[in-house]
């Protein structure tokens, strides 16, 4: 059987809220090392990869590898019934056709159980090689969210260019253009406001803002977001979930026609 208890149930709620508009359904894969998901959006332009480590859960048991297909909208409906301070336990029997979500309030006075029917989902899994990126930028997730939201009011695409001192986001549209530059700032006083750039080669790539705005829905999961860029490769937008795992998004670039 599979059983996993997350004291901070809100994490699971935030993860599902962050991905439910991007992907319709997905297989959640559980094995000894943890709970993971990989799914592409319907247009095969972006990909979501979630990884929650077994040791990130207060209790984790997975007797055999299971893949549980769920419709994200339905999972979201159920998780919205959990309180923000509730602990969430997921349970499923081997070869079962449902997954049970148990919500426990902090004082343990309220206990609720919801069963979600599992589905068979054909999923295509992409092998993503571990790569060294030309540039890695770590910036406050709220700052990234603001930039992609602001730029989307001007244009449809953003050019992200990274040099050793700064990362620049630029767009053009019918009404004009916009540029936002964030300088490297390794603030020791306020680590939550730091922007760090690690670069082997300057890089500039263009991406659709619509997807980046969708990824930014993961902002509540982490104080920082990590952007990884290499020439002619998809961007990786990564949210580290402290002590538990990470939620990564991959987005193919816009290319010259």
């Amino acid at each position: 059987m599979f059983e996993a208890r997350l004291q901070q149930g809100a994490l699971l709620k935030k993860v599902v809220e962050a991905i439910k508009d991007l992907i319709e359904d997905a297989n959640f894969d559980c094995n000894n090392s943890g709970f993971s998901l990989q799914a592409m959006d319907s247009s095969h332009v972006s990909l979501v990869a979630l990884s929650l480590r077994a040791d990130g859960f207060e209790h984790y048991r997975c007797d055999r590898n299971v893949s549980m297909g769920m419709k994200l909208a339905n999972l979201s409906k159920i998780l919205k019934c959990a309180g923000n301070d509730d602990a969430i336990t997921m349970k499923s029997e081997d070869n079962g056709d449902t997954i049970t979500f148990m919500f426990e309030s902090q004082n343990q006075e309220r206990l609720s159980e919801f069963d979600l029917k599992l589905m068979d989902i054909d999923s295509e899994h992409l092998g993503i090689p571990e790569a060294e990126y030309d540039a890695t930028v770590k910036l406050p997730s709220s700052e990234f969210q603001r930039i992609v939201k602001d730029l989307a009011s001007i244009g449809d695409t953003v050019e992200i260019s990274v040099t050793k001192d700064a990362v620049k986001f630029g767009t053009n549209g019918d009404i004009g253009s916009a540029n936002v530059m964030c300088r490297q700032n390794k603030s020791v006083d306020k680590p939550e406001e730091s922007t760090e750039i690690d670069i082997t080669e300057p890089v500039a790539l263009t991406f659709a803002l619509r997807y980046l705005n969708s990824f930014a829905k993961a902002t509540p999961l982490s104080s920082h977001v990590v952007l990884k860029l290499s020439k002619d490769l998809p961007i990786v937008v990564e949210y580290h979930i402290e002590n538990v795992g990470r939620l990564s998004f991959f987005l193919a670039p816009k290319v010259e026609e």
């Binding site: 247009s43 095969h44 295509e124 899994h125 090689p129 659709a208 816009k254 290319v255 026609e257």
Partner: peptide, 14 residues
Amino acid sequence: YGAQASLEAYYQQA
């Protein structure tokens, strides 16, 4: 700037 590439152009099916 133009065409939107798909992910399969970069990554192989696993």
